[in-house]
Design a protein around this nucleic acid. Structure first.
Lengths: 249, 249
DNA sequence: CGTGCACTTGACAAAAATCAAATTTTGTGG
DNA sequence: CCACAAAATTTGATTTTTGTCAAGTGCACG
């Protein structure tokens, strides 16, 4: 378990790779974009809200009156398709920002995957903050670039043909997330259910189950329990992630 | 053929849906985010460049020294995977922005799908522009939100299980693009090759070919020639796009 | 008018979706 | 702490779809 900063004391935080500066310091490591004073100023206009696991934070199409910043826990952003099934567009983790809108309305629904604690920042106040602090906008841009890149990575996962490749890429994403925050790399924590993984990578639940089995059988992975897997053969793992077969021909 | 504004006179342009304002005026229509004076100021720091069809604009991993803004033509952003095949992350059209970087390097390669004409804006100058004009940053944020949403739509396309659904969603995207610019809706222009469509929607070239045939056979579509299709049965078309089967279970 | 490329079509094999049932886990109330 | 119910996951059998390979066909361009 990890020591957590006391909520509400420091203020909202945004973590991302810097788009502009060539990344000499800590390549591939995300860092905190906001200064202490920025965080303090944001803290004034925001409130801390808690949601239980499974609670809906907002629904697609609702009036977007606030953006959210995760203090702790995991959130999923998803779209329910008219037909059957839903696609999870993104998993959001601590220091992520979500709730940006299109024409004043939220573009997808969000739910708490685990119990969460978030800052709720009214957009009116946020807009004021932007006018006051030009540098803050800059940070938001950085974060958006980062999210755009994540979305493109998601596209890679979805474009993979074989479920094993999808799963490997997904696990690799989680691993990099822990790495970016400075955690251990071979131990992966899975806050979401198998079925949510399936909805994210674009495969059926049975297919995911079988893919896990394939990876363990091949000795690449060890499933400690539902929420914890360990990478045994790091080389094979990365090989699988790279030798994926996305778009054919 | 379409009348084109004379290049270089007006300056860079960014078109998107507004994230914040509830869209009373022209719902679902994109509009120009930059004011004339902003465009004029950007014009000063940018240069017009032309590329032939198929020409590479920049390569993944190269030092990102400029961003680009399309005046006319179509660009593809793609990533070559180590194994086989490449995934097209996005098609970019006039008034789109591309070339935003991660840690100072471009995150994917770009090529001209058609002959193109672009503004090249050095990032150093752009950064200066941001410091001068706080409002400009705001517009960049708006554009990024828009691109993020496009990336999520791409994810939807990729997550579809059946190739016919993928193709329908793709064509719908192109149709909406024309709609957003005020063009006719049932006539769709395809600047890219079948194979590029395949690489975008995550299917094999034969699968795309068969999907086109299925749609024409069912009387939904009429393929005038390689670059022009017409939607015959608008209702069936939209039905296919919505009844898609993305993530199962 | 021929050459090359883009696309279409066909046959077959591989992978995954689906349906359905068995099994494990989790949560709840005693 | 245990028993039970509900939910999540695994497993199996079958069917559909698509990828693959390979051979045509047609259009475009020189």
């Amino acid at each position: 378990m990890r020591v957590q900063p006391i909520a509400g004391v420091r203020g909202p935080a945004i973590r991302a790779l810097d788009p502009w500066l060539p990344g000499n310091p800590g390549y591939g490591r995300t860092h905190q974009l906001l200064s202490d004073s920025e965080r303090a100023r944001l803290a004034v206009i925001s409130s801390v809200v808690r949601f239980k696991k499974g609670a809906e934070i907002y629904r697609e199409g609702a009036d977007a009156d606030a953006v959210f910043n995760i203090i702790s826990g995991v959130v999923k952003a998803y779209t329910q398709s008219p037909g059957n099934g839903e696609l999870i567009a993104a998993f959001l983790f601590s220091e992520d920002l979500f709730g940006l809108a299109q024409e004043g309305r939220y573009v997808n629904s969000t739910k708490a995957v685990t119990p969460i604690e978030v800052y709720r920042i009214p957009i009116a106040a946020l807009r004021g903050q932007c006018l006051t602090d030009a540098n803050f906008e800059f940070h938001v841009i950085a974060k958006l670039c980062h999210e755009l890149r994540q979305a493109q990575h998601h596209a890679f996962v979805l474009a993979s043909k074989h479920t094993v490749a999808k799963l490997t890429l997904f696990l690799q994403m989680l691993a990099q997330l822990e790495f970016a925050k400075g955690g251990p790399v071979n131990e992966i924590y899975l806050p979401m259910s198998r079925s949510e993984i399936a909805e994210y990578v674009g495969a059926s639940l049975p297919a995911i189950s079988r893919a896990f089995r394939t990876l363990t059988t091949r000795g690449v992975l060890q499933v400690r329990n539902r929420q914890h897997v360990k990478i045994i053969d790091q080389r094979a793992f990365e090989k699988l992630a790279n030798d994926r077969q996305e778009a054919p021909c």
